[in-house]
Amino acid sequence: MNDKSTWEFGTRQVVYGAIGAALYGVLSWASNFVPLPAAGNVTFRPAVAVLIFFGVAYGPWVGFLAGVIGNTLGDALSGWGFYWNWSLGNGLMGLVAGLAMAAISDFRAQKDIIKAVGWGIAGVAVGMLFASLTEMFVGGIDINTALVGYFTPAFIGNTVVTAILVPILMIAFAAVASRRGR
């Protein structure tokens, strides 16, 4: 899992990191105009599936950069401001999901899809936990608010999105990759 290709940082990672970030930013922005399902205080952000997919397909650095820069772009585009801890949390979400890359050989195979979704959910847990807990220092909230008010809704919403949309993205990607031959 920690072989050279997993942690390599070359032209491919720079370009796909930028593409992942731009897609994540645009889709976060587009969420303002597309009616998305919500339940209670849980909102579902389809952009998260794109971030997890880029991590799984291109590795942890791409996932990390797409998360950090993409969240910053999405916030900037929507005019929310700059919240470093949530951007870093999104980066960690992509980085952990990217650890699945070395374990995946066939994007169509059921066991590989399960691995990708599993690592994706682990990424969601790590990233959202980081962002929620750092909010205790940045925003001065207590641990109950961090876990119940911030982490739980973010974790549930992002997990559902990952479980539903990442397999669809992987199957579509398998078809594109086989046509392209690399």
């Binding site: 930028a18 731009a22 820069i69």
Partner: peptide, 15 residues
Amino acid sequence: SFTMDLAFRFLPTFA
């Protein structure tokens, strides 16, 4: 830094 710069350039195209 180039990743960040490139992301800003890609953004209007993807939108």
